[in-house]
């Protein structure tokens, strides 16, 4: 494993990310800030409690998770798309880097970026909620696993897509709706039995609740199951991306 090469790619992508801070850091923080303000003013104000935490606290992990998932996926897919359009992907392909090193280089930058965004959102949230982390190790490891999984998903999309339009479909039409329906703003306990069952088919439910468990020790799903779902998600996507790279799908003619 050539870590110098991996780091060169990671550093390049991070630097690109730092060069447009408004888009990459500002946007998710502002969006989340608005959610907090709106929801805590309209619904929160300490009156509503779900599973023993205030409403504002309740929605915070889900908002972080949604931002991590969207950010991880979008940053890698657009990075790959850009390098296809600018023609710089071939610079990577003529290098001695292995596919695994390329995958790691891209994903690491995205994971680091997601962690920074998550920390910023949490920092913003501290204006509204008290500092409270019940299971810090679970929380960190889980966040990294999910960020990694969505980075790899972003790689898959970046390779597959031919246009930015195709790239933007996934965050808008998949992650955002599945996050909203995955219990960011409510506990699925309030849903009718049928909808609860349907909700349990949504993998994002496990990710959002997993993070909520990390923060407060409360969750709609078994935290071990959430951990397994996240890990399996990462594993399956990794196998897919490995297959795409090694067959040269859309990369090598």
């Amino acid at each position: 494993m050539n870590w110098t090469a991996i780091w060169a790619l990671t550093w390049k992508e991070l630097k690109r990310f730092i060069k447009v801070p408004g888009q990459t850091l500002g946007a998710p923080v502002v969006t989340t800030f608005l959610y907090f303000v709106v929801f805590s003013l309209s619904l929160g104000r300490g009156m509503i409690e779900i599973q023993g935490v205030s409403y504002t606290e309740f929605i915070m992990p889900g908002l972080i998770m949604m931002s991590v998932m969207t950010g991880a996926l979008s940053s890698v897919s657009s990075a790959l798309m850009l390098s296809k359009i600018m023609g710089t992907l071939s610079d990577l392909l003529v290098s001695p880097m292995t596919y695994l090193e390329m995958i790691l280089g891209f994903s690491l930058s995205s994971v680091i970026r997601s962690m920074v965004t998550a920390a910023l959102i949490y920092g913003t949230a501290l204006f509204f909620v008290p500092f409270k982390v019940e299971h810090p190790i679970y929380l960190l490891v889980y966040l990294v696993i999910v960020a990694f999984a969505f980075s790899v998903a972003g790689l898959i999309i970046g390779i597959w897509a031919d246009t930015f339009e195709q790239v933007s479909i996934f965050p808008t039409f998949l992650i955002t709706p599945l996050s909203f329906l995955g219990g960011i703003f409510y506990s699925i306990e309030v849903l009718p039995a049928v909808l609860q069952t349907v909700s349990r088919l949504n993998p994002l439910l496990y990710m959002i609740n997993g993070l909520r468990y990390g923060f407060y020790g409360v969750s709609d799903v078994d935290p071990t199951l959430a951990f397994i779902v996240g890990s399996v998600f990462l594993l399956v996507l990794s196998l897919v991306i490995w297959r795409l790279f090694s067959t040269g799908y859309k990369i090598k003619t």
């Binding site: 060169a8 790619l9 023609g87 710089t88 071939s90 290098s95 001695p96």
Partner: peptide
């Protein structure tokens, strides 16, 4: 390899572009 089609990374300076490529080669 110097490819026929001209490419350039719009986000980086000349020095950064070449340093990144050196990095890919370890």
């Amino acid at each position: 390899l110097v490819q026929q089609e001209i490419n350039a990374d719009y986000f980086f300076s000349v020095r950064e572009i070449v340093a990144i490529q050196a990095g890919y080669f370890g």
